[in-house]
């Protein structure tokens, strides 16, 4: 049964990489059920991330957000800050797709704080870029400028000419 869970996960990933998102979703749901059966929180967390990602490409941003929230919740339980940061970043982007810029900014800010804590300059730069965009959309150009400047500073530091 445990091997079956891993096989479902691998099949889900393979369909995802082939761009078959419906099939990927079906396999990841099976994987999720087995992870729950075993109380395997790490596998459950992975399944939620994979399900969130697949729903982005199915255009179901609302469903993706719910899966990413489950990922976030479990990453905190598992005390995995890198995954927590990634979940916040995914949620920020998902709420941008849902055009809920305030909530997007909330998650991008949470991502920024964790990236700073982890001294992840690349992550910090991405968070600043996203926050600049969110504040522009919210009609707050002064705050957007602060983050755009920070984004420039970090990009120069890490040599990201793009």
């Amino acid at each position: 049964r445990a091997a079956q869970g891993r096989a479902y996960g691998n099949l889900g990933n393979t369909h995802y990489l082939l761009g078959s998102f419906m099939e990927a979703t079906a396999f990841h749901k099976e994987r999720l059920a087995i992870a729950k059966e075993f109380g395997d929180k790490a596998a459950e967390r992975r399944a939620y991330s994979n399900l969130g990602n697949a729903h982005i490409f199915l255009g179901r941003f609302d469903v993706a957000a719910e899966y990413y929230k489950k990922t976030l919740q479990l990453s905190r339980q598992l005390k995995d800050q890198a995954v927590e940061a990634q979940a916040c970043y995914s949620l920020g982007n998902t709420y941008t797709l849902l055009q809920d810029y305030e909530r997007a900014a909330e998650y991008h800010l949470r991502h920024l704080l964790i990236a700073q804590e982890l001294a992840d300059r690349v992550g910090e730069g991405r968070a600043c870029w996203s926050l600049g965009n969110a504040y522009v959309s919210m009609g707050s150009p002064a705050q957007a400028l602060t983050f755009a400047k920070k984004h420039l500073e970090i990009s120069q530091e890490i040599g990201d000419r793009n």
Binding site: G5, R6, G9, N10, N13, Y16, L17, A43, R46, A47, S49, N50, N53, I56, F57, Y89, S90, N93, T96, L97, R126, W129, S130, N133, V136, S137
Partner: peptide, 26 residues
């Protein structure tokens, strides 16, 4: 409005490009 929308899409599109190849392996 259109310009703002394009700016918005830029950072999200970059994320989606990365996401396409992002799988949580077993």
């Amino acid at each position: 409005g259109q310009r703002l929308h394009l700016m918005q899409v830029d950072s999200v599109q970059r994320w989606m490009e990365d996401l396409k190849l992002m799988t949580e392996c077993e």
